[in-house]
Design a protein around this nucleic acid. Structure first.
Lengths: 210, 210
DNA sequence: GTCTATACCTAGATAGAC
DNA sequence: GTCTATCTAGGTATAGAC
């Protein structure tokens, strides 16, 4: 285990600052490349160039590409979970918090760094790499289910709505919104999908909470 | 142009029958591999083995990997469009037809062969390869928008719903449903997302049409 | 139209010097 | 910890025989 003084030391664009440790730069570069090009599309060489490191460094800190990818995927999953948790734990009605999640700032054309991995056959084939992805969506759906159930219990939302099914739809709209935005080459399609599902849910808000 | 006697001669699993022409087998094999592994993850070698063809054949019929992929992508996009058109042009209320689209038979774990391509940087970077993807989703959204607008005009659906936004949500739920299913390793997550959005829309159906 | 041979580059990893 | 060879396999394409 390497002592790391700046565990999240990467710049937001995935270009690690020159003051980070080498293993830190490797992880951040891998995160950025996995997001942009996926696992099969990311070569050790590309990672090394981006991290400004040599072959030796990479194989000193990690056993190989899968090991480095695992560190990168774990960190990405943790980060996403923390950010979303903050929004869903926030104040306001259930609908407010769902809306905060749906409308949170994001680059729709880049897509979801976790959801993207589901399209990578080599990631899905490796139980270790796939676990963080599975767990993230599992957590996300159950957390949204809780928020929706809470909304129904508080009388904010119609009791007829199935919280789990609605939660799945909400997560799916986000993931599918990215697909639409990327296909169109414009983020508007994402926003439209979000607006659509929010309007559908708002239609089930009770009179008192509107 | 090679005369092709069986333009759709491939078996459903992407294992082209031995009686198809070589170029036909190449296209069908490429379609299957693009679906399974994406563009970057698909090598000419893998295509040739699956199609039981040699190097020479491939470079005789196509100028290279991008050219062959283009033929494969175009056919996949056309096929998808035809299948969905059949469902949306069918009988029944707007809600019936949307449900037919959402619940059509599919292997949720395989995902969408068109939507998958949006995660392929090399596909998105090539205008020729990207065009069929863009056009497919464009068509799909506008066709669903028409169906929803028709439903509102006929008084089946509440007039307050924005047809375009709702259509985007419906497509997004499908695409995102695949992501959830693949992450979970089980198709149930897809079904749940579909059930959720259908319930939300059904809540906006007018009393007379229920 | 299809085959084989060949070519050159990259992917991914190891070895050993410093 | 990092560097520079070095290695084997595969990706992608061309050349020319049949």
């Amino acid at each position: 285990m390497t002592p790391v003084t700046r565990p999240q030391g990467g710049a937001p664009d995935g270009r690690p600052s020159a003051t980070s440790s080498t293993s830190e730069r490797l992880i951040e570069s891998t995160r950025a490349l996995l997001w942009e090009r996926g696992y099969v599309g990311t070569s050790p060489k590309a990672i090394l160039q981006r991290a400004d490191a040599g072959q030796g460094s990479m194989y000193h800190h990690f056993s190989g590409k899968p090991d480095l990818a695992l560190a990168a995927i774990r960190r990405t999953a943790e980060e996403m979970r923390a950010e979303v948790a903050r929004l869903l734990d926030g104040p306001g009605t259930a609908l407010d918090r769902i809306e905060a999640y749906l409308r949170r700032e994001r680059d729709a054309l880049k897509g979801c760094p976790v959801g993207r991995l589901t399209q990578d056959p080599d990631v899905m084939a490796d139980p270790a790499l796939r676990a963080p992805v599975d767990e993230t969506f599992d957590w996300l759906r159950s957390r949204l289910t809780e928020v929706l159930a809470e909304g129904a219990a508080r009388g904010e939302l119609a009791a007829g709505l199935d919280p789990a099914a609605t939660a799945a739809s909400v997560v799916a709209v986000v993931q599918g919104g990215y697909v639409l935005a990327r296909a169109a080459g414009a983020p508007a399609a994402f926003d439209q999908a979000v607006t659509g599902v929010l309007a559908l849910i708002a239609g089930h808000a009770t009179a008192g909470s509107r």
